[in-house]
Design a protein around this nucleic acid. Sequence first.
DNA 1: AATTATACCATACAAATGTATGGTATTTTT
DNA 2: AAAAATACCATACATTTGTATGGTATAATT
Lengths: 206, 206
Amino acid sequence: MPKELTKTQQRILEFLTESKSKGFMPTLAEIAKKFGYNNRSTVQQHLQAIEKKGYIKRNSKLSRRIELLLEDKFFIPKPILGEVAAGNPLTIYPDAIDTIELPTIAHMPNDSFLLRVKGDSLKDAYIFSGDVVIVNPNLEPVNGKIVVAILDDAAVVKRFFKKSNSIELHSENPEYQPIIIKKSYGNFKIVGIVVGIYRNMETIAG
Amino acid sequence: MPKELTKTQQRILEFLTESKSKGFMPTLAEIAKKFGYNNRSTVQQHLQAIEKKGYIKRNSKLSRRIELLLEDKFFIPKPILGEVAAGNPLTIYPDAIDTIELPTIAHMPNDSFLLRVKGDSLKDAYIFSGDVVIVNPNLEPVNGKIVVAILDDAAVVKRFFKKSNSIELHSENPEYQPIIIKKSYGNFKIVGIVVGIYRNMETIAG
DNA sequence: AATTATACCATACAAATGTATGGTATTTTT
DNA sequence: AAAAATACCATACATTTGTATGGTATAATT
């Protein structure tokens, strides 16, 4: 239960998060410049305050070594999506969209992004709850490929099939019915194609 | 079309990529320490060479500011050392049989290596033929963990169980019998622990 | 009313950092 | 055989970097 940050401290922490996602932690001087301080010791004291409140950890004497605590350990999605359902669609909270934490992974090139899968509807396609899927938004959906789609406020991972009058999103688990999208359907969008799966075994109990 | 890197340069570039994925670019001194150089200028020259070949860009005068160019390196090529059987044992080849573009999120601990799985004996552990497993040779086998072992000239991926008088290697597929290794068994060695799995979906037909 | 936290500034200093320069030895290329 | 690239070492130097210390002013707590 971390203490609350002041406005200034928040702004600095935001800048740190932003910097991390770009791949380069700033020096005190760079932070000072960014916020118009004439002086590094001002930054120094802000960082000490932020550290005291438990948001960061500084590696004394080492330059640019500010660790962001309180961030999700594994690299969850980049922006917007949150979690994506392999089973029933998951709701995405509208106000959560902007406040989802940036990925901790440094700089993800190529516009690809990661999503952690929840649910087991794709287990016959060998994708399981907890797996991280790598999604490329720049590929065209092809019949039979596994895609990420948005339906209204929910996101799903399903196998894609284009029919003459509709698009069908199939689960591979017989317990789940296919989702059929007619042309009239309003809020539907293919987000991208799943190009890879990664699973970390170290954190799995068994 | 970048020029080829030497072994040393490759190792350094890999270290940079790795560092970036951890969030902290190293200083020259840190790189030197990592590779056992007594001297920063050695690193300095390697970096200059790597930069000249177009793999990185350095921000002169700024510490820890090494940009990784060519960063489709979301996927970095890694050698696959052989194939390993989830079902019946397979032979391991001394040289790399293939390379794979491993996503940088698939954090590869030092000294870890890749093996491609053949066979379906671990399908109940969600590992399938064609998957690439990341193997860490520096971890102690723990009961229930999935390990890579060598039996005579063959290698297998199985779930590890230590009993009082033997070691058992279990498949999760009921079609396969567990392998039981008694102490008298000659040519047996645990190669490492499976710490991650990566599967490329683009090459999969369906 | 007194204390503490916040938000800045200035100066000083040791250590870290990147760079420059010059060197040796070995391998690769021409 | 000569030239270039590679892979290291050593020393020197200007900047950068983080820290320490001391200060002022204002807002928030006690």
